[in-house]
Deep mutational scan, measured.
Amino acid sequence: NLYFQGLKYMVPGARVTRGLDWKWRDQDGSPQGEGTVTGELHNGWIDVTWDAGGSNSYRMGAEGKFDLKLAP
Rank of each mutant, 00 (worst) to 15 (best):
D51R: 03
G44I: 03
D51P: 01
S57Q: 11
P72S: 14
D26V: 06
P12A: 11
D67L: 02
M60Y: 10
F66W: 12
G29N: 06
E63D: 11
D67N: 00
D28N: 12
V11S: 08
E63K: 09
K23P: 08
G35A: 01
M10N: 00
R59F: 02
F4T: 11
A62W: 13
R15C: 04
G33S: 12
D21R: 05
N1P: 13
R18Y: 06
R18M: 08
N56C: 14
S57H: 10
R59V: 00
N1K: 10
G6E: 15
L2S: 15
G35L: 02
D21L: 03
A52E: 08
A62M: 05
G19Q: 05
A52W: 13
L7N: 08
G6S: 14
H42L: 12
D21E: 04
W50F: 02
L7W: 11
G53I: 01
L7I: 12
L7Q: 09
Y58Q: 03
Q27T: 06
A14L: 07
L2T: 14
M10A: 05
M60L: 07
A52K: 09
V48F: 01
S30P: 09
Q32T: 10
W24N: 06
P31Y: 08
A71M: 10
K65N: 04
W50S: 00
T49L: 13
K69F: 12
P12V: 12
G61W: 04
Q27D: 10
L68A: 02
E34V: 14
A71P: 04
V37E: 00
D26H: 08
W22N: 03
G19Y: 06
T38P: 00
K69C: 15
K23Q: 12
G39V: 05
D21S: 06
W22F: 06
Y9N: 08
D26N: 11
D51W: 01
V11N: 07
L41W: 12
G13C: 10
G29A: 05
K69Q: 13
G53L: 02
G44R: 00
L70P: 09
V48T: 01
T38A: 08
D28V: 05
A14E: 05
F66A: 03
L20F: 12
Q27F: 06
W45L: 05
N43I: 06
G54T: 10
G44M: 03
V37I: 14
P31R: 07
D26F: 08
N43Y: 10
V48S: 00
G13M: 05
P31N: 09
Q27R: 05
G13R: 04
G64H: 07
G33T: 12
W24P: 06
W45S: 00
T17F: 06
P12T: 10
L2G: 15
S57M: 12
D28G: 06
A52F: 10
W50Q: 00
P12E: 10
A62R: 04
Y58V: 04
V48R: 00
L20Y: 12
N56H: 14
Q5W: 14
K23G: 07
D51T: 02
D26I: 06
D47K: 15
A71D: 05
E40M: 12
V16K: 01
D26L: 07
G61H: 01
K69S: 12
T38I: 12
D26R: 06
G39M: 06
D51F: 04
G61R: 03
P31K: 07
K8M: 12
R18F: 08
Q27S: 07
L20S: 11
G6M: 15
S57R: 15
A71G: 07
G33A: 08
G6D: 15
R59T: 01
L2F: 11
G29Y: 05
G64T: 04
M60S: 01
G64N: 11
T17W: 06
A52Q: 10
F66R: 03
P31E: 09
T17K: 11
W22D: 04
E63W: 09
W22H: 04
Y9Q: 09
V48Q: 00
E40C: 15
D67E: 09
G33H: 06
F66S: 03
R18K: 05
P72Q: 13
G19L: 06
L70A: 08
A71C: 12
P72M: 12
L20Q: 14
G53C: 07
L20T: 13
E63T: 05
Y58L: 02
W50H: 00
D51G: 01
Q32N: 14
T38H: 07
Q27Y: 05
G33N: 06
M60R: 00
W22L: 05
T17I: 15
N1L: 12
S30C: 15
G53W: 01
R25H: 14
F66K: 03
L68P: 02
G19T: 06
G6K: 11
D47H: 15
S30D: 14
T36W: 07
Y3P: 14
R25W: 13
S30Y: 12
P72A: 12
V48Y: 01
G13F: 06
R25E: 14
D28H: 04
K8T: 09
N1G: 11
A52H: 14
T36P: 02
L2R: 14
L70T: 05
N1E: 14
D28C: 06
Y3R: 11
F66H: 05
Q5V: 12
I46N: 00
